[in-house]
């Protein structure tokens, strides 16, 4: 198995059985926000610890010493161990990462191992230099997979967990009658010849059509419709009855339509 340090926003993982899939890399912004939530959680933990041990300390001088000692130890464990413990127990997530749907994984697409969890958290101090994550953030911006130094040493990446849902065709205005459905064999050819990127581009164009200047809108849909006409040719009576924009809307509906079965 190998990993490809590919595009800026995704990590392509190739498995030994010849399969490859992509994972969306988390942005430094999302990671920073998650880190802020984690910092807040650490502060809350330490505050709760102070209150709890303060009660113990009130019992006498021996207990006061023990309470202070436990407090120092507790602060150390929460600041160093917070990330380690949660990432290990929650499969690569801390509370901050969970809120922002981020997850730390091995850069080969595997689940984290314990040494990886410990190393990426132990080496955090150098990412924190000289002020709050400045080195880590700089390294994130300039590394291909948005890895901070600790991630480099541990061989980990932080991904954004996307739980895909089907586009809502009703709200896009592409639902309703689609003359393409009368020619299922040509629809099948259109689906076969359209790449996922082209499909996404057409969907984006439909979603943003109202934000385009009129002239640019006509021009864009003209080019797109011509492109899709070349991929699969529907009979003339279908083509003539549709404007360029309606042609692209029908195409998007064909490409994204789910089985009715």
């Amino acid at each position: 198995m190998n990993y490809k340090l590919g595009s800026r926003n995704s990590l392509t993982i190739s498995t030994p059985d010849g399969l490859s899939f992509q994972q969306t890399i988390a942005t430094p912004y999302a990671r920073g926000m998650a880190a802020l939530i984690d910092l807040l959680m650490i502060i809350v933990c330490n505050f709760a610890l102070s209150i709890g041990l303060g009660v113990l300390g009130a019992l006498g001088s021996f207990f006061a010493d023990a309470a202070t000692s436990l407090m120092i130890l507790g602060f150390f464990v929460t600041s160093v161990g917070y990330g380690m413990i949660l990432e290990w127990l929650m499969g690569g997530q801390t509370l901050g990462k969970k809120v922002f749907r981020l997850r730390v994984i091995d850069q080969r697409g595997l689940m984290l191992t314990l040494p990886q969890v410990i190393i990426r958290n132990l080496l955090r101090p150098v990412d924190l230099l000289p002020v709050y994550y400045l080195f880590g953030a700089l390294f994130c911006f300039f590394s291909k997979n948005c890895q901070r130094l600790g991630d480099f040493a541990a061989g980990t990446v932080v991904i954004r967990e996307v739980r895909p849902s089907a586009p809502d065709l009703e709200t896009l205005g592409v639902a309703g009658d689609n003359s393409f459905t009368r020619y299922p064999h040509i629809e099948a050819r259109l689906r076969q010849r359209t790449t996922p990127e082209e499909a996404q581009l057409a969907l984006d164009a439909i979603v943003r059509r109202d934000t385009l200047p009129p002239e640019r809108r006509l021009e864009l849909f003209h080019d797109m419709a011509n492109h899709f006409r070349e991929l699969a040719t529907f009979p003339d009576e279908v083509q003539e009855a549709l404007s360029d924009e309606q042609y692209v809307r029908n195409t998007v509906q064909t490409l994204y339509r789910k089985s009715q079965a």
């Binding site: 899939f21 689940m111 191992t113 314990l114 895909p164 689906r191 010849r193 359209t194 790449t195 996922p196």
Partner: peptide, 29 residues
């Protein structure tokens, strides 16, 4: 054989998650 981006995206994610769970190495640790 098909340019159905949405289903492919859903499957990619599902397989990535299944891949992580299948190759878990915790017992040894």
């Amino acid at each position: 054989f098909a340019g159905e981006a949405d289903t492919a995206f859903y499957l990619e994610n599902l397989i990535a998650r299944a891949y992580r769970q299948l190759h878990i190495r915790r017992k040894r640790e």
